[in-house]
């Protein structure tokens, strides 16, 4: 293309491409932009918002309000704790079995893979009642553990799937060399394979964390006390009996989306490869 002189037609095509992309990005980003505009709007002016905000009258009160008057800090703390621990436990369990599936031969492997895949498709509403009764009887309602147990379970399919594929990309010869040098299978795993697999483990961890951070159904049913709520549930509970405090809600939305957007920007390659792993391979 670059060798040719740009013709009118190719300029037109570039313009069309550019216009299409601009349109697309504008549509995708507008809801977030509008949340930002709303969150800094002065009180009582929600019906007079303009597309370009009047920055002289901007107010950051809502941001202080959600942390001082609402339990938003607590929700974030709960979400962070639950998501981190679910990731830790889930990834440990997943990497053991992914290693076994990728590297060892044993009867029942196909059955295991089938089971894991079916769990990925599993509607969680189908088990919410026994899980709820179990957590109630064990006294695990309104605790972190009550959410960690289901989260680590339902993160297993994706992380096992991804990690198995990743472990398979590590050459067998490395492990054989370790085994010949006298390593046990466990040592071969922990000293040779695991360090090489760390990037894959990290990707699986990001995806598990995002899943646990975003989960709603279990969080809504199991942790109903305000102090035990996670962020997605807490943020939807800002609403009063008749009204939704939109300014506060939008401040909360902006506060959780900005860090997430930064994480996504930094790790986009990993996230894309992880999230589409199961689907692109047939």
């Amino acid at each position: 293309m670059s060798k040719l002189r740009p013709t009118n037609r190719s300029i037109l095509r570039r313009l069309a491409l550019f216009a299409g992309l601009t349109c697309f990005v504008a549509i995708v980003m507008f809801p977030f932009y509008w949340q930002l505009v709303t969150s800094i709007s002065p009180p009582g002016q929600l019906t007079q918002l303009t597309l370009i905000p009047d920055l002289n009258n901007a107010s950051t009160d809502a941001y202080f309000f959600i942390f001082r008057e609402r339990n938003f800090g607590r929700y974030l703390y709960n979400s962070f704790g639950v998501a981190s621990l679910s990731t830790l436990f889930g990834i440990s369990i997943a990497s053991f079995s992914a290693y076994a599936i990728a590297r060892m031969s044993f009867p029942g492997k196909a059955l295991l893979l089938g089971l894991v895949l079916s769990i990925a498709m599993f509607p969680q509403i189908a088990i919410i009642s026994p899980i709820f009764l179990f957590m109630r009887d064990m006294g695990l309602r309104n605790t972190w553990l009550g959410l960690i147990i289901p989260y680590m379970t339902f993160s297993l399919p994706l992380s096992m799937w991804y990690l198995t594929a990743f472990f398979k990309t590590i050459p067998d010869s490395l492990e054989d060399a370790a085994r010949i040098d006298g390593c046990t299978p466990i040592q071969a795993f922990s000293k040779v394979i695991f360090p090489l697999a760390l990037p894959g483990v990290f990707t699986a961890a990001i995806l598990t964390f995002i899943y646990a951070w975003n989960e709603y159904l279990f969080a809504l049913t199991i942790n109903t006390q305000d102090a035990a709520r996670t962020m997605p549930v807490g943020i939807t509970m800002f609403q009063g009996e008749y009204t939704l405090p939109w300014v506060e809600t939008s401040a909360a939305v902006v506060s959780v989306t900005v860090p997430l957007a930064i994480v996504v920007l930094i790790f986009q390659q990993r996230i894309i490869s992880g999230a589409t792993a199961g689907a692109v391979k047939e």
Partner: peptide, 20 residues
């Protein structure tokens, strides 16, 4: 990366954004 952001936020949060 831009297109990943709506995908990565909680569905409950995107529901609130649209409800508004």
């Amino acid at each position: 990366a831009t297109v990943l952001i709506p995908w990565s936020i909680p569905a409950a949060v995107s529901a609130l954004i649209w409800r508004y």
